[in-house]
Nucleic acid binder design. Sequence first.
DNA 1: CCGTATCCAATAAGATACTG
DNA 2: CAGTATCTTATTGGATACGG
Lengths: 188, 188
Amino acid sequence: MLVMRELLLGARRFSDLRSDLPAISANVLTQRLQELENRGLVRRRKLPPPASVQVYEATEWGLEAAPLIREMGRWAARSPLHDPTLPLSGVSIMLSFTAMLDAGRAKGFAGAVAFRFGEMVYVAQVANGAIQVARGEPEYGAALIVGEPTNVAAVVYGGAPLELLQIEGDRALAGRFLSLFTLPPKAN
Amino acid sequence: MLVMRELLLGARRFSDLRSDLPAISANVLTQRLQELENRGLVRRRKLPPPASVQVYEATEWGLEAAPLIREMGRWAARSPLHDPTLPLSGVSIMLSFTAMLDAGRAKGFAGAVAFRFGEMVYVAQVANGAIQVARGEPEYGAALIVGEPTNVAAVVYGGAPLELLQIEGDRALAGRFLSLFTLPPKAN
DNA sequence: CCGTATCCAATAAGATACTG
DNA sequence: CAGTATCTTATTGGATACGG
């Protein structure tokens, strides 16, 4: 399931997956990708030249698991044992935005914010109380936030100061964006 | 997750769980229940006298997993490898009704049908294009269907003849009820 | 860089016997 | 009936070395 999650925002290379799933060894990742391919959830594809590199991508059916994984995340965050300060991947934090958007606060907000984690760039776009997340280019956002996913989570969900992150462009917009999200109340 | 699923329609005893999860051994079930209790998903409770028997029930938070499990079921049924003739428990078939209700067909239907699997009785109630499933008494339904869960699935999802099931009460209603459900199209 | 193959250690699960 | 305890086997995963 974690491999699928990492593919939900677009195709990835073997080593990208490995570095975002730090606890997985090469042989296990190979095996998982095989299994997912056999079951019709993942497709291997060769990028056209000049890239000519092999990537793994979720099939259409695989992508249909996205809402499930999002809602599982929201449900699991209510666990008494949930700890939002644990390390997480770039895809995880971006997907968490779609799970944790506070509808009330989002009403009064519109705009796009880009995130860069290492080489990967994602853009989150909020309008009409809804959010959309996708891979993108830095310039697609009015602001660009650079930092570790874990630090973004610390700011958004842990109340850590904005200074943890490097922000370019519309800093005010970025600040407001980062306060649109709330964890659901814990069970118990 | 399978243990949780079995608790979604109400508290069960240790041996009920064991017989509905036929591949689980006693020690593993003990361990699972411990784990689920530690995580706040399951509660042990002693039924008041004269029953005075111990049961396991899902906590409120545990019950919030019900829609997730339902949608996982619906999603998984699209697997090219999915086989609807495999054995399943009473809870499973009842939950599948909530996942597979065909909104169009359900529009023109209203009524309650009871199912008895061994000692357990469940009632499904359809009205206004929606379905509700719960534990109940046979007399809560205008019809009572008795049979193996697997045979119910064979009729509903496999096009097997009604004769596989024993039906008491309003047989016509039961027949129409059993045709309200369709599996989602397979992926691929 | 993208894996595959091999080997070993840790874990999980099945069977079975037993107890309050 | 409702588990617990013990033992054994099977599976999984980590580490590592290697090949296209």
